[in-house]
């Protein structure tokens, strides 16, 4: 008998362990669901962790109102299939209530406004642990993130004063009013996610595969043409074969020229690409530490 797991099965086992720890250590967890491949992977792993029972916590989607329509259709089908409960936090509502002010101009995005809607939804639901599909390889501030990440009563992250995590013990103790962000797929890379989704035959939204779409170029990044983005006069819309590597708000998610129409072709593409997947995210490009700055305030 060869007592050795392949790397994907070992990552899977680690993530399942974390998901079960969350169910055991917290009273009211929630899974933050964006509609992207990482949160789809999270839902799939949660199904595995609690099989044959249903996922013992609801999914929370913070809706910017500026989605790709494919994302919402996929989300609703997934909820139907898994029998999970869905909660929607709305940025549109936060704007209407006057809690946040919409950004203006060419690079206006609701991405930053999500934080307010997210914290509001967490507070309203009295959630004490919010599970997220962030990975350490995505971004340099996320490379320092813990599996169990403590947040104070304002939802703030204090990167210089994090609890050390040793062996496989995760300290989820907290004061009343504080909560945790938990990242079960911290150790996965983009390539691991794709290899795993291929190995397990997991369904994904069509946006991830190459398709023809109207796009225009801005600061070296291809953006999907949509009514939510104000174009500059010099920006020309053209039709191209593209695919998304990450899916977020339409206004800040870059698309990539690609011919990859199957998961195996995507793996090939990801293995040889020279750009990180967040290289297309204009929200990360605002400054050198824009992710860290947003995370400290409670961004996911």
């Amino acid at each position: 008998m060869n007592y050795q797991l392949n790397h994907l099965k070992e990552l899977e086992s680690e993530s399942i362990f974390i998901l079960r720890e969350v169910a055991a250590q917290f009273e009211n967890p929630v899974l933050m669901f964006s509609g992207g491949k990482d949160s789809i992977l999270m839902v799939y792993l949660a199904q595995k962790a609690f099989h044959p029972a249903k996922i013992p916590f609801p999914l929370l989607h913070v809706d910017t109102g500026h989605n790709f329509p494919e994302t919402i259709a996929f989300r609703d089908a997934l909820v139907e299939k898994t029998g999970a409960r869905l909660i929607v936090g709305s940025v549109q509502e936060a704007i209407e209530k006057g809690m946040v002010t919409e950004e203006k101009g060419f690079s206006a995005s609701r991405n930053g406004l999500q934080t307010v809607a997210l914290l509001e939804a967490l507070e309203k639901g009295k959630f004490d642990a919010a599970l997220g599909g962030a990975r350490r390889d995505e971004e340099k501030a996320r490379a320092k993130e813990r599996f169990f990440s403590h947040r104070d009563e304002f939802g703030q992250w204090d990167p210089k004063n994090q609890r050390p995590e040793l062996w496989n013990m995760f300290n989820g103790k907290k004061q009343y009013g504080e909560h945790f962000r938990v990242f079960p797929i911290s150790n996965w890379t983009e390539l691991d996610v794709w290899q795993y989704l291929a190995m397990e035959n997991v369904d994904l939204p069509s946006l991830y595969y190459a398709h023809e779409r109207e796009v225009f170029e801005r600061d070296g990044v291809l953006l999907a043409n949509s009514p939510y983005i104000q174009k500059k006069p010099t920006e020309v819309v053209k039709k191209m074969m593209v695919r998304c590597r990450t899916i977020g708000d339409v206004t800040c998610t870059g698309v990539w020229a690609s011919q990859a129409v199957t998961t195996e072709q995507i793996i090939e593409e990801v293995a040889t690409t020279r750009m990180t997947e967040r290289g297309g995210r204009t929200d990360d490009k605002r400054s050198e530490t824009s992710m860290e700055d947003r995370k400290k305030k409670g961004y996911f």
Binding site: A141, A143, K144, K160, L191, E288, E292
Partner: peptide, 23 residues
């Protein structure tokens, strides 16, 4: 590449364990 936090970059030191991945 590994020192991701603002204060690490400012001080030129590594404060915390950083995780890196390759295959």
């Amino acid at each position: 590449l590994t020192d991701g936090l603002k204060s690490e970059r400012e001080q030129g030191i590594t404060i915390d364990v950083a995780y890196r991945y390759f295959s």
